[in-house]
Amino acid sequence: MTEVLIAGFLAATVRVATPLLLAALGELLAERGGSINLGIEGSMLAGALAAAMGAVWYGTTAGMVFAVLAGAALAAVFALITVKWGADQIIAGTAITLGSIGLTGAVYRMAFGTGGARLSIPTVSPIDVPLFSKLPLIGPALFAQPLTTYIGLALVPALWWFLFRTRAGLQLRATGEDRRAATAAGVNTVMHRVLSLVAGGMLAGLAGATLVLAQVGTFAEKMTAGRGFVAVALVVLGRWHPVGALLAALLFGAATALQYLFQAMALDVPYQLFIVLPYLLALVGLAGVLGRVKAPEELGKS
């Protein structure tokens, strides 16, 4: 009994953490280049709707592709107005998210009508890793998850390698630390900022697709419910490091999964406590209680 509960808790943790991890890794890329993109929430929402539309019309694979493209498109708009035209990043990101809420709401109603019926969308099934998925406790959590979870997990070492072991990664970090010095050293900082933002938007779109195709199975207005903003906090909590982002996302997932566990154990604790727990954790993380770390120097400067 306990083992089933714990295995379920771990599986729920990873499930909740997956979209957050993907979005956080995307935001991490952007922030390492010096851009704080609050529009990632909008990218995620656009990704969710694009995934729903793609999946309904052409199947789940098309849904994933659409989502990645939609997320990238919004991030490209953000890159255009902040990098090229130098607008304030925080307000531009808020505006992009606002626009995305309006756009997705309108397109959703135009595409699927205003009826109250819930849209039923084909979902992706978990991929079992043979043998490993039967492991006690951690088997279901790590080896019986949808494809996007594996993508997210694989991206952690990949991003680490890119950021800290490749020339392009070094240039991206230099762009985020001191744009003028990097430019003087011959780095194309504009390209690095734009590409890191667009790649971040792609991951946010994939995060939105995960929500729709692997978890909820339908689209609803404003369904991302601030997960993109949480991802921004996770990057800080994870100290701008891919492994840190993974741990932060898992922590967030665990806090949410505790909610299900406590409900299963019929404990009388207000469920809202678990809703706010992750946000409070993020605030604690922002305060640097877990150790001070320096943000990229150029962060937030357009």
Binding site: I81, A92, T94, A95, I96, G99, I101, A106, R109
Partner: peptide, 14 residues
């Protein structure tokens, strides 16, 4: 859909 006003707001802000 009334939500299109959000798009208007976003365009104005940007």
């Amino acid at each position: 859909p009334a939500v299109v006003v959000y798009v208007v707001e976003a365009v104005v802000i940007i």
